[in-house]
Design a binder for these strands. Sequence first.
DNA 1: CATGAATGAGAATTCATTCAT
DNA 2: CATGAATGAATTCTCATTCAT
Lengths: 205, 205, 205, 205
Amino acid sequence: MGTENESRGRTFIEQARRAQIIAAATDTVAEIGYANASLSQIAARAKVSKSVISYHFEGKDELLKELVTQFFTDTWAYMEERILAEPTATGQVRAWVGSQLAYFGAHRNGFLAMADIVSNHREPDGSRPFAEASREEVDGMAEIIKAGVESGEFRVVDPHSVASIIILCAEGLLGGWAWGESFDLDAQTEVLLDFIDHALRKEHP
Amino acid sequence: MGTENESRGRTFIEQARRAQIIAAATDTVAEIGYANASLSQIAARAKVSKSVISYHFEGKDELLKELVTQFFTDTWAYMEERILAEPTATGQVRAWVGSQLAYFGAHRNGFLAMADIVSNHREPDGSRPFAEASREEVDGMAEIIKAGVESGEFRVVDPHSVASIIILCAEGLLGGWAWGESFDLDAQTEVLLDFIDHALRKEHP
Amino acid sequence: MGTENESRGRTFIEQARRAQIIAAATDTVAEIGYANASLSQIAARAKVSKSVISYHFEGKDELLKELVTQFFTDTWAYMEERILAEPTATGQVRAWVGSQLAYFGAHRNGFLAMADIVSNHREPDGSRPFAEASREEVDGMAEIIKAGVESGEFRVVDPHSVASIIILCAEGLLGGWAWGESFDLDAQTEVLLDFIDHALRKEHP
Amino acid sequence: MGTENESRGRTFIEQARRAQIIAAATDTVAEIGYANASLSQIAARAKVSKSVISYHFEGKDELLKELVTQFFTDTWAYMEERILAEPTATGQVRAWVGSQLAYFGAHRNGFLAMADIVSNHREPDGSRPFAEASREEVDGMAEIIKAGVESGEFRVVDPHSVASIIILCAEGLLGGWAWGESFDLDAQTEVLLDFIDHALRKEHP
DNA sequence: CATGAATGAGAATTCATTCAT
DNA sequence: CATGAATGAATTCTCATTCAT
């Protein structure tokens, strides 16, 4: 996360158009799925002609990449603020997971679209353009865990492994929420946070 | 899981061809992704003409559904044996997660293809045909947790919530393994199992 | 009409198979239309494998041609008997039209299939193989009319033109019957016969 | 007949393209028959790429329906003017049949294509979309006959039956003309009109 | 800037036919 | 004799992209 803004050299109106199209693309992918989200569909939802998209974006690929990048950026901005406000490792881990889930919960379509694109989009050569995004995330979380272990807040664990587990568990939870129609994300978030607490804290506190 | 076998009334050679095509489809989806896995691609990998697929399967849908169903069936057969062999709830939870991860680890392409299809395939009306598969899974795990709580093995938790979390965490882990090229699934499985142990066991044993 | 039988040199069982397949083809074309009547459909209705058809007939074309030819032959056999039994031209015209409509009325599927094939079937070069069949028919009827005019039964008309009109009117009637669900063929036949009577008979008899 | 124009909201150039494609489709169906008239063939005749057709029409169905509808509309406009100009029932019947045959005679390909489509086109469910078109026609003609009977111009007949016969006879005549290469439509029209005259008029005027 | 128009590549599927068994 | 299996050609349709206006 923390991808830099590509907006240099774009006029204001250009920016607005791109934002409008990205919003339409987000809704489209969220509603009908990556495989069915054709430029036609996106253009229809944006109430714009198909060729406008080709005009403002290099192609479908750039549009989708931009959508994901922006969503990552926004999510991280929200999370970072809340993580940095916490003094303890325990607090930071909770803030991380909690704020991430909260942000996604508040931006369902954005999350659905992002997840769908991230897991489906491939370069012409077959590689996944977003595969490494989560690596950075794990590294960030691992530093927090490491600090917590060193400070004695947490029991002794391998920071990187545990960070990975925590992040993947949160992702798993989101998957469950994304699909199920009756999934109480807030409640399950609490269960997961409690779960993590118990797993990390020293056994005889 | 536990879907019944549809093979009645098929000749041996027909069975073999279907298996061959399903294998090719598995590799194809695993390698180039659901969205790019056209019948052409699958046929090419099976070294067979496109229309052979239409001959042996009702259509692309049936092929993919069959692929997923078979993989589910095989996975569950492997898991069930190991779960039932465990006398304690703790052992059963470990066996469940452990055997699932082990089986998937040993059948990477099958898992990749299954996961890709399950998360992307939609009926013409937009619904997801495999959406409820994981519900059953959660129910099964919930029963084990409930028994463990009642027997005093586990601390008091809501069985369904925790079952859901555990399953989603395992899914999350698989997601990490599926994508990362340097992900040690066995090691991470141990970490997750330890993680679950700590989260479930009574605080002062 | 009056096409000769092509059955020389066929075994009895061969004949039976061909008859069975032709019957199935008749029902198929009648029910789902020429354009949708694939060999698959015909084979399914005949409860026979597709390749049996290819074995017993040179191809789809020969099957359809045979179907039409046989239906023509049978129809004409029925008509001829009734026409020749009439001593007067008036009676012969009535017998012609009446017996034709009666036979078709009693063999609806046969008629529907024949008509559908005759009007749709084309040689690879685009020509219609059955185009001239009705020419012979008109010639036959024209002879009757001519005799009737010469004998003074009918008013003076051009035999060929009137024969053509009568035959085409009967065809038109059949078209109406074939499509409409509530078309009383017997009743309309009477109206047509009366119509023809009035058109042919001398004004002051 | 009398279908309303769907052209609102189309640009001029779009209209022109549709007209061009419809013309090409007309020639194609007339020449090679409904069953062989693929989009490829039509596109080739229109000197246009296949996908242009899909761009301008919803699909093959819409194209063919539009073709038929336009031809019906044009034919009826021509006929109506001539029928309404006649004061007597006799004149109206003659005008009806005469103008219809004349219009078709002047638009041979249009007629051939229309007839081929009307008798062959089926909805996916197997029903015929144009089956009821001729019902309306018969009703219109029946009213004229009824008026003629009431005014004493015609002998006493069942208006609906006779209307049906007349229309079907005209259709039959067209069938003969459509197929035969040496069919003098004008001459045969006169014979048919004379035929109808004799059949309808009072016996001792 | 915006867009209607056009297009070629590729999608799934159907079909008549051939052939080894 | 009969047929399951296979295939290549053809069908309709969708899509991302380009281009002149």
